[in-house]
């Protein structure tokens, strides 16, 4: 069953296309990652899903309901975390959470308390004086406290410290177990990799690719920075059948696609000082798709 459907969605500002012909389908129980650099159109797409913006062209649906027409109906089963952290000043976190719950007609706050405990949030202070991470937690509680069927999160981990990011990933996986459909945007590939089933990659307003995480991982090449004991070792290594880039007298970067197994036995024959994994950035992934001219599935 398709929970979220985006058809040919286009938003134009003057002559500039913020997003162009975006198509997405997200199924029930799926965790979908929406990946792209800043300004690629992630938030614009999400704002359309929330019914905040009128599309120039195309439409989007949540559970078959038009996102622009049935906003109030849709909000009943949706949880939303805005990309911009903004609350009503002069309220404490608890007051705000209670206020939003009442606006939803939600009287049972047990889930909210569970969430506050899980995220270690002490919300008794004024929101104005909270740190970015604490505010983000308040937002997360508001997004999940009514046990929504579908959750839309716009860069959920921004502001969270690494420990909390890990906790958040565990939390998302638990929600996935419960069958919640999750749509989350991010510019960090690692967190998408750990949580999502499928990923949509957007750049400059266009969907570059949508594929499963397994495919993405397969296609993703790994880079290793290797420091050799001396120059002779390196020049000997350069003969090996790998994609090697020499970056210093004793340093080189090796690019391995898919299986790392082939590299390791070879390396055993060399005297190595250091071995480092270079995490692949978003740009590398994009380069990959640009080289291929973009695949659309």
């Amino acid at each position: 069953m398709t929970m979220i459907e985006v058809n040919n969605l286009t938003k134009k500002f003057g002559e500039f296309y913020s997003i162009q012909k975006v198509d997405l389908q997200i199924n029930k129980g799926e965790v979908f990652g929406f990946l792209g650099p800043n300004g690629a159109g992630k938030s614009t797409t999400i704002r359309h899903l929330m019914g905040f913006l009128q599309p120039t062209e195309g439409r989007c649906f949540i559970k078959g309901l038009d996102c622009r027409q049935s906003t109030a109906e849709i909000q009943k089963f949706i949880g939303y975390l805005p990309g911009e952290i903004a609350f009503i000043d002069k309220m404490t976190g608890q007051q705000f959470i209670k206020f939003i719950a009442q606006m939803r007609g939600l009287h049972d706050l047990t889930r909210a308390h569970e969430l506050m405990q899980y995220f270690e949030l002490n919300a008794t202070g004024l929101i104005k004086k909270m740190s970015k991470g604490m505010k983000q937690k308040v937002g997360l509680v508001c997004a999940f406290m009514h046990n929504p069927e579908i959750v839309i999160l716009d860069e959920p981990t921004s502001g969270l410290d690494p420990l909390m990011q890990t906790k958040f990933i565990e939390f998302i996986l638990a929600e996935k177990e419960k069958g919640t459909t999750i749509f989350m945007s991010s510019h960090m590939i690692e967190e998408i990799e750990k949580t999502c089933d499928r990923v949509g990659i957007i750049n400059a307003g266009k969907i570059v690719a949508t594929e499963t995480i397994a495919d993405l991982k397969k296609r993703k090449s790994k880079k290793f920075l290797i420091e050799f004991h001396n120059e002779q070792e390196l020049s000997r290594f350069l003969e090996e059948p790998f994609k090697i880039e020499k970056i210093g007298p004793t340093k080189a970067i090796v690019k391995v696609q898919g299986n790392v197994q082939t590299l390791l036995p070879t390396l055993a024959n060399y005297q190595i000082l250091d071995l480092d994994v270079i995490s692949q950035s978003l740009e590398d992934i994009f380069m990959h798709y640009y080289e291929k001219g973009g695949t659309e599935s």
Partner: peptide, 8 residues
């Protein structure tokens, strides 16, 4: 955003 992200 929070106000209109409620079922109103």
């Amino acid at each position: 955003a929070y106000l209109i992200a409620t079922p109103n």
